[in-house]
């Protein structure tokens, strides 16, 4: 369990050494192999996305081009279905709430465990990584009765955040612990405490600024997860973006708006991760 590898942090890992140079023959062979692989896989990854993009730009008649579907992202509604825009809004809100809760729950607890209760760290790690072995489809079965209870008090789909925080735990934990491992928490906090800082100040002014990168990392991973989540919302009968897209596709299988919205959400997540990756590089450069 403890060995489960993170999905997010490898983008920041860098190999320790690279060849200074190699034999021309081998480099040529390797480059040929690389370009071949990149072309084949690039096609495999890009073709479905291109096809989907083309469908999102389909006009009223087949083969024409139109931006209608992209404009519909904010205006689409269909009889008997909730409109699309509120579903987008609620999903974005869920992403924000889940990120905040994950950070508020994890960062102080992780710092605290490092400082005061190291004997809890193994149990803590186990609990954080546990959701990897209890995937959403299993969790949702046990969550059903709990959500029946929640519904007595609040009906909003925003309540999904309770479950989403759990789903995000392993990824956020791995990202944050990579950041914490890179700094000497006990020494930093002892230094700050000896200068008269309160515990609150230690965490917000000393620890957090030093692990900014990994906090950003955890945030992006959590957001991506929430933006793409379907299983729990669908089975607990809530409507989020993915459920809404699913419902529209069931009613009008080729509605262009589901493609434009899908492409938009994918591009949003991709942009987030790419920005993160380059932000990470700048920071490391600055330090080196």
């Amino acid at each position: 369990m403890a060995a489960v590898t993170s999905l997010g942090e490898s983008s920041l890992d860098r190999p320790a050494e690279r060849p200074r140079g190699m034999q021309a023959r081998r480099r040529r062979r390797l480059n040929l192999f690389r370009y071949l692989v990149f072309t084949v896989f690039g096609l495999f990854f890009i073709l479905p996305l291109l096809a989907m993009t083309r469908f999102s730009l389909e006009g009223r008649t087949l083969g024409t081009w139109s931006l209608t579907a992209w404009k519909q992202i904010v205006s689409y509604s269909f009889p008997d279905l909730p409109p699309l825009l509120p579903a987008i809004e609620i999903t974005l809100e869920l992403a924000v709430i889940s990120c905040v809760i994950v950070l508020v729950l994890l960062v102080p607890t992780m710092v605290w465990i490092r400082l005061r209760v190291q004997w809890l760290s193994r149990i803590f790690e186990f609990l954080c990584l546990l959701p990897l072995t209890i995937p959403a489809i299993i969790l949702v079965v046990g969550l059903a009765p709990i959500y029946n209870f929640i519904r007595h008090y609040e009906l909003s789909a925003l309540m999904l955040f309770w479950a989403y925080v759990i789903l995000a735990l392993p990824y956020a934990y791995r990202a944050l612990s990579a950041g914490l491992n890179a700094i000497d928490v006990p020494t930093l906090s002892e230094a700050a405490r000896s200068l008269g800082a309160s515990w609150f100040t230690v965490i917000t002014r000393v620890i957090v600024p030093n692990m900014w990168q990994s906090i950003l990392n955890a945030t992006v991973l959590t957001s991506a997860l929430v933006l793409g989540e379907f299983t729990i919302a669908y089975l607990l009968l809530y409507t989020n973006l993915q459920v809404e897209l699913f419902s529209i596709s069931r009613n009008t299988p080729n509605a262009s708006v589901i493609f434009s919205t899908s492409v938009a959400s994918l591009m949003f997540a991709f942009a987030l991760l790419l920005i993160l990756s380059f932000a990470g590089r700048r920071r490391q450069r600055g330090r080196g």
Binding site: R20, G21, M22, Q23, A24, R25
Partner: peptide, 13 residues
Amino acid sequence: KTTTLRLVAGLED
């Protein structure tokens, strides 16, 4: 100096 060694070893051309 290291380049010399790697050339002799054949690790570089």
